[in-house]
Design a protein around this nucleic acid. Structure first.
Length: 278
DNA sequence: AAGCAGAGCAACCGCGGGGGC
DNA sequence: GGCCCCCGCGGTTGCTCTGCT
């Protein structure tokens, strides 16, 4: 029993929107609003399906949209919220006024993922990419018996270990995006949070915040997520110096050719080959 | 200058949820 | 309770731009 298409596709236009179409849609929606997207294109005189109109409006034409790259604060907030909510882009977008889920999703996939990987953090799990290596025997077992992805009960990056296998996990990571439930995020009890940073697990967002356990960042204030509740990953492996540098200085390298994270990698005990699996 | 590869982003597709009947 | 319709979401695709060789 096939599902009906969202609209009668015969005779309907697809692909990029023209300025004229935008004008028609904006003009119609600003004067009439929309009660039902299905009839909007008809009333607006557009040869588009309602779904396409809704997407165009929500992602591009809405007057309250911000344009341009996400600010550092917005990026931090996205990372925090992603650690908490997973790939629920609409929920994340709801916390960033003027940003759309599509925009955040694209920004995550094209920018933030890379940044996190470069920092040695798995963008999916928000855990370090390079887990402690098992003894040789265990590593062999892991290498010999990689279950097909569809048969694995847990994400590959948690099952597989060792250099090649880690790389394989990196490749599979694009296919499986396990949701991180709030209870999976290790956070100390409120009383302990302020004093026991060693119990924290990994959250890249906290790396980007000026402070993990004291005052909440502006982003956290917006998100409603108390910074004190967030784990402090990099403190675990000596990357707390990042705080003094700032996101932009680290990632852009401020015109320096040398990778700005290099000394953090080495201080944290990473091998170069461990880090540059990108 | 031309060709190629990779990055970035807008738009599409298919599925699931919610509400009305 | 079941069916249908509509909307919204998340994943994916494909086009365009940019930088490199």
């Amino acid at each position: 029993m096939g599902r009906q298409p969202c609209c009668d596709k015969v005779g309907l236009k697809k692909g990029p929107w023209t300025a004229e179409e935008d004008q028609k849609l904006v003009g119609f929606l600003l004067t009439h609003g929309h009660c039902c997207w299905r009839i909007v294109p008809k009333l607006a005189g557009l040869l588009r399906c309602g779904k396409s109109c809704r997407l165009r409006w929500t992602n591009y034409l809405r007057p309250d949209l911000k344009r341009g790259l996400l600010s550092d604060d917005e990026e931090r907030l996205v990372i925090e919220l992603h650690a908490q909510l997973g790939n629920r882009w609409s929920k994340i977008a709801a916390r960033l006024p003027g940003r759309t889920d599509n925009e955040i999703k694209n920004h995550w996939n094209t920018h933030i993922k890379k940044k996190l990987r470069k920092m040695g953090i798995d963008p999916v799990t928000h855990q370090p990419l390079d887990p402690p290596r098992p003894p040789v025997g265990e590593q062999d077992v892991a290498l010999q018996a990689p279950a097909p992805p569809e048969q694995q009960g847990t994400p590959p990056h948690q099952e597989l270990q060792g250099g090649d296998v880690l790389r394989e996990a990196e490749e599979n990571e694009e296919e499986e995006v396990p949701l991180i439930e709030p209870h999976e995020i290790t956070s100390p009890p409120p009383a302990a949070a302020a004093e026991a940073t060693s119990n924290c697990s990994v959250s890249p967002a906290s790396v980007l915040s000026p402070s993990c356990s004291s005052s909440a960042s502006a982003a956290s204030a917006v998100s409603g997520v108390d910074v004190a509740e967030w784990p402090e990953p990099m403190y675990l492996f000596g990357m707390d110096g990042i705080m003094d540098v700032g996101w932009d200085g680290l990632v852009s390298g401020a015109g320096v050719d040398v990778d700005p994270f290099d000394h953090y990698y080495h201080d944290a005990g990473f091998d170069d080959q461990d880090v540059w699996i990108i």
